[in-house]
Amino acid sequence: MTRLAAALAAALLLAAPLAAWAAGNAYLLALGTRAAVFALAAVSLQFVVGFAGLVSLGHAAFLGIGAYALLMLGGAGLDETLVSLPVAVLAGALFAWPTGWVALRTRGVTFLMITLAFGQMAYFVAEALADYGGDDGMPLDRAPPLAGTALLAQPVAFHLFVLLLLAAAIAAARLLGASRFGRVLRAARQDAGRVAALGFDVTRVRLIAYVAAGAAGALAGWLLAVTTGFVSPALLDWRVAGQLLVMVILGGVAAPEGAAAGAVGLVLAEEALSAASEHGRIALGALLLGAALLRLRLRAPAR
């Protein structure tokens, strides 16, 4: 089921440039790129929710940090991808470290609330950045150069760039999940007391996972800024974090490629339904409910 959905999502993303060309509609490509970027964001969140079992409602902060890192570096003439992208990733990790350290003192709903609180803090900081458009935000001057070339200004090239990073993120998440580290992380999701009794520092393991997810989330934010050419506090809205959670849950939580498929599905469904009618949002709600129920039914006999 997850595999089928992931294969379908991969096919859609790969076909986006072709579809745009055949239909003579560049918007189809932009939509595909957006879906791929959200897929990467969902993969990063899945690492925390699915593997670590920590439901975070603050993941939009990392998107925002990655996006604002690019905006700010661009203002200083440092938007070169080979500089701004690693810096964005590092900024995500640097935000994740202390906030994760605090949030991981708690569990369950409290963890959700604390991550939400940190997310809101980041949101208000972004809103207060008067030099960067305050609550209106600001457009990027240009697509960031890649090794001095304007390659990423080319929509198809940028789309493939995003797909490459998405594939790398999924591969890395799968590798990490199956590793010694991942086994400890996932075992602690089931019984942290047991894992600690074996001699593992559960909080530290979770913090490493949280920081990795934050770094990857900031990568997605950098890409999202390039995709839309615009950076604003709306990226850090808690509703974006909620949407990311829905994508992960829709995709089945357990696997990174599932989260990616969930993201692609949600972005496309949202687009199709809101284009179709004013009642699109209601239909989307019904669709999500249906998908959640379906997941429950699919999962029930397995345990």
Partner: peptide, 21 residues
């Protein structure tokens, strides 16, 4: 094996496959 891992060198190796080790 998870218990053995706790005592092994590099117990948290991030890219070393746990299953079948």
């Amino acid at each position: 094996a998870l218990a053995v891992q706790a005592r092994a060198p590099r117990p948290l190796a991030p890219f070393r496959r746990a299953a079948g080790d």
